[in-house]
Design a protein around this nucleic acid. Structure first.
Lengths: 154, 154
DNA sequence: GGGTAAAAGATCGTATGCGATTGAATCGGA
DNA sequence: TCCGATTCAATCGCATACGATCTTTTACCC
């Protein structure tokens, strides 16, 4: 409504901000998926750690962090929480006492089946076709990787 | 590489997760833009509040929250921080003592010019063409709005 | 007009998230 | 071999973020 279309004054509205689109879409996703996680008794970051372990059990804190783009300062508390909930165990590697290996417990493994419906539910929520869903995801990932490259080379 | 293309076992890798694409892209954007904000002496959420006020000064906490999708429990501390930094003022509305109006100070207004180069820099960082940049943003916003609608109607 | 409901911020508790630093263990080179 | 550099996880400080709750003020309704 502001009729600023072709004026010299290129004052930007928040809706013009790419970074806000990402930021707000991320938060909307969190809000939309939180009830499902709450039902499972976990949070989204906890879920991400579990996904990482379901794919390959017994990874190091470091390795999980590399996959999730998280620092140990963030991961350590999350993993300790998962340990307190009885979903994973943490043990120092006898070969190299600096490393901590994270392993799923029986309960942690069983959680995978309970979380399985989550994957399809997200696509439903977005209202995208299978094809657009995959294309959009690929584009977002491509942008992410370009951003990571840009900030790592600084 | 895992050759799971058409197998019955539809075990999902993290890279298949749309929500993780959004989550990690958002974090990559934060990482890429943080140095610029640090140079301005502010953070990203603080910047968002300022953008809201640059567009329309003197808005209520409520109104800002509606635009940014943030609760008062998040906004109040952020705005108080901006006040402590001398960028905004907070004053109760004499007409309705429940409302708090947030106004830019002279310093807060001057910050707009300093932050101006930020907008174009983001597009550079993504490496997208003007056209794809706008299209992708529009698609992400559309997904966001669908997600918000889905979770509000629950 | 008075009492209940509703609105608007603020507060509290919990959970991320990251930069900087620390501590312990390991590595590597002179 | 031995000492500095590196690695890995953990800790600390700070800043979000949100649900639940609280306080104050206003609105509403009989």
């Amino acid at each position: 409504m502001s009729e600023q279309a072709r004026t010299e004054n290129t004052k930007k509205k928040l809706s013009d901000f790419f970074c806000f689109a990402l930021y707000s879409a991320h938060k909307a996703m969190q809000r939309a998926t939180r009830p499902a996680f709450t039902e499972l008794g976990i949070t989204y970051p906890q879920y991400l750690v579990l996904v990482t372990l379901w794919e390959k059990d017994g990874q190091l804190v470091n390795e999980i962090g590399h996959i999730l783009y998280l620092e140990s300062s963030t991961l350590t508390p999350v993993i300790k929480k998962l340990e307190a909930m009885g979903l994973v165990t943490r043990q120092r590697d006898p070969e190299d006492e600096r490393k901590v290996r994270v392993k799923l417990t029986a309960r942690g493994k069983r959680m995978e089946a309970r979380a399985e419906p989550f994957f399809g539910a997200v696509k439903e929520l977005t209202g995208l076709s299978d094809r657009r869903f995959e294309e959009l995801q690929a584009e977002i990932v491509a942008v992410r990787d370009r951003l990571l490259e840009a900030s790592s080379s600084r």
